[in-house]
Design a binder for these strands. Structure first.
Lengths: 135, 135
DNA sequence: CTAAATAAGACTAAAAAGGTCGTATTTATA
DNA sequence: TATAAATACGACCTTTTTAGTCTTATTTAG
């Protein structure tokens, strides 16, 4: 329930690995997948997402790969999670807004607003932690 | 990924509802289920778990039901989650221990220990929040 | 031209979550 | 003492999510 998904784990591993290299160094999805025993195709798709959001930059073709596009202290863990799993994944109670959306018991729910305290705290923790602090 | 499960939501709703009644007041699973539009059988099983752990006390037979067995300030949200979903549900990375367990890339994983910072924070938030503070 | 890389979407399999059903047991009370 | 209404408990089913695989297209250095 509060487990990181494999995708996020793989994404963080990849980002951290890239952050440990030289500035501007290129890495292929294949080499990272092999080193950490991650399914290649899965990692490839994760890196494509990270690339679309500008955390890493891709270069196609032979001799291609990815390189980090930000400094480790600019890479918030929360943003990486958002990119890989979507923002909804970090909301502990779905119906935070005043509209019902997914929550079938919206009108009678009595725990929604009290739990926003937890939400705020978790958000803060994840917003504060950067890849820099993962070393 | 960081959503509370429906079971936990239902459990918290039930506990909060009971906490808003008179001291020692009995409630049936049926009346709570109806009031908050929760599937009855599901809520019943959740309350059985809460009863086994002593958060609430059950009385069988006609005129039976459940009554709260602790003061709202003694009811930690973290313990309620543990009871309903198991302790594993709150560990953001599975392989915290030094044994591989579920994690297939244990030996090569480089994010395990850094993320314990998040774990510690989340634990603290959930340990601190009680049902008392849900009003 | 080719080999090795990213890009992207469809598909499948496995696991988790959510919900339902059936049966047993308990107990107040008519 | 029979009955109705409650908890107890396990098996089962369905849906959703997660994880992983497969296929095809595109790019590009050499």
């Amino acid at each position: 329930m509060f487990n990181l998904s494999k995708k996020v784990e793989y994404g963080l591993i990849a980002i951290k690995h890239m952050a440990s290299g030289n500035k501007g160094q290129m890495f292929t999805a294949k080499e990272i997948a092999e080193k950490y025993q991650i399914p290649y195709e899965l990692l490839a798709k994760i890196m494509q997402k990270l690339s679309k959001k500008g955390f890493i930059v891709s270069q196609q073709g032979i001799k291609g790969g990815y390189r980090l596009n930000k400094n480790p202290q600019e890479l918030k863990v929360s943003e990486i999670i958002h990119t890989i799993e979507g923002k909804q994944s970090l909301t502990i109670v779905q119906c935070e807004s005043d509209t019902p959306e997914n929550c079938s018991i919206h009108t009678t729910c009595i725990i929604k607003s009290p739990l926003l305290k937890i939400q705020t705290n978790i958000n803060q923790v994840l917003d504060t932690l950067t890849v820099m602090e993962m070393f």
